[in-house]
């Protein structure tokens, strides 16, 4: 479906942890059209009239609502954070190529910080569509304050394994530590799995390496600054292997943001 504009209304806008916010929009058309891993492009209320839109992955969509989970990182998110319940927000979507929703074997979801947002929507859709799926979430952050939405995953019945750099929650170290334990377990038992990840580039690269190394599918959601969001401007490029095996500059907004791990050509 082509991207369309929807004039949405804020029904809830609340803190989700230090520096993090949850924005719930009444958006009947978008909520029905969005798939996990897709994103929306938000015209931030209160920013100057010529400011670019800001892209956000979708934390949940359904039941007439679209939920975003974001971190206040710059001018756009700082302005968005002040929007009040009842305000209208102009949203462009659905955008991009999301995660596959079917999975052969165990879905292993690997999130870093607010990169957990699209993994929640994916987990919700997986649990709903195939109760036998049993996804496992591996979530990492610097401290326990960066581990978001744990209550929502608990409500979905999703098993969660945590890691923090300072050891304030879960294992101390990187989220790839508990992930590697699970990969060893799956491989020793001959159990298939697929990897789904969103977070900082370092994490994405680490997860992609594990997908390629184990020969299992990996789905990597890239986070890039975007301008148009619809493929018109060519500002959000990621070098990937094309269908013919030759490298090309893919647009994260339409060819991604989710790419197959095998296809991504990482900067050296």
């Amino acid at each position: 479906m082509g991207a369309f504009l929807e004039n949405t209304r804020i029904v809830r806008h609340a803190d989700a942890g230090p520096g993090y916010r949850t924005l719930v929009l009444e958006a009947p058309r978008l909520s029905a059209a969005l798939s996990p891993g897709q994103f929306v492009h938000v015209r931030v209320p209160g920013l100057e009239a010529s400011a670019l839109r800001r892209p956000f992955s979708v934390f949940f969509a359904g039941e007439g609502r679209v939920e975003l989970l974001y971190k206040v990182v710059g001018r756009g998110t700082a302005a968005l954070a002040t929007a009040a319940e009842g305000d209208t927000v102009d949203v462009l979507g659905p955008l991009g190529h999301g995660f596959p929703e079917t999975c052969r074997g165990t879905p292993l979801l690997v999130g870093g910080g607010y990169g957990v947002a699209p993994l929640h929507f994916l987990a919700a859709r997986m649990v709903q569509s195939s109760p036998a799926a049993h996804p496992i979430l591996f979530l990492g952050g610097r401290t326990r304050d960066d581990l978001l939405a744990l209550d929502r995953f608990a409500a979905l019945g999703v098993e969660v394994r945590l890691a923090t750099n300072d050891g304030s929650a879960g294992s101390k170290g990187f989220v790839t530590d508990p992930l590697d334990d699970a990969l060893i377990e799956h491989r020793s038992k001959g159990m298939p799995f697929e990897l789904f990840t969103c977070g900082p580039d370092g994490l994405l690269k680490a997860v992609a390496q594990r997908a390629v190394g184990t020969g299992m599918p990996g789905w990597i959601s890239m986070d890039r600054h975007m301008v148009c969001g619809v493929g018109a401007c060519f500002a959000c490029i990621q070098r990937v292997k094309g269908p013919d095996g030759r490298p090309f500059n893919a647009r994260c907004c339409v060819n991604g943001p989710v790419f197959a791990a095998n296809d991504i050509i990482w900067d050296s």
Binding site: G2, A3, C233
Partner: peptide
Amino acid sequence: TFGYGTEYAAA
């Protein structure tokens, strides 16, 4: 700013 003309067809 408008790609190859189709990108904004629904917007």
